[in-house]
Write a protein that binds this DNA or RNA. Structure first.
Length: 128
DNA sequence: GCATTGACGAAGG
DNA sequence: CCCTTCGCCAATG
């Protein structure tokens, strides 16, 4: 696995190329989240070796909207399982609707059985 | 350019 | 426990 730190060693953090790679990596991982499962911003950042840059994962997913690519951003929630990003979808209810469509139930703005549905890329992708 | 703002999360009080 | 602070860093004003 390629960490962001490794990328940083080659490219300055301010480099456009480095940013682009980071976004691409985030989208790539997000696409691997199976239907009916969810993960967190921090888990993705951690997998990319950028443990403390969870906020940038949110930015990357935000960029995915007008990127033209199909990124299941609704499967990424915060570390408590809350739908903190739902306001950034086309409608305020779209994120929850997309989750419900794949049998992921939401109550009080939070994914039900979050721990059971949690998909950790660090674990799931390191074995494959 | 500097200050503020977040789809975050850990640590400290 | 809950609330605040802090590190993080691209984007925005």
């Amino acid at each position: 696995m390629k960490s962001l730190k490794t990328e940083k060693a080659k490219l300055p953090a301010t480099s456009k190329a480095a940013q682009f790679n980071f976004y691409q990596d985030v989208w790539s991982i997000t696409k691997k989240i199976p239907r009916g499962r969810v993960t967190s911003y921090g888990a993705i950042a951690n997998y990319l070796g950028a443990k403390s840059s969870a906020r940038l994962v949110g930015w990357a997913l935000n960029m995915s909207h007008h990127s033209g690519e199909k990124v299941p951003a609704h499967r990424v929630v915060n570390r408590n399982g809350m739908l903190s990003g739902k306001m950034h979808f086309a409608t305020p209810t779209l994120m929850e609707e997309l989750l419900l469509r794949e049998k992921t139930l939401v109550q009080n703005n939070k994914v039900m059985d979050f721990e059971k549905k949690f998909w950790d890329p660090m674990i799931e992708l390191s074995l494959g």
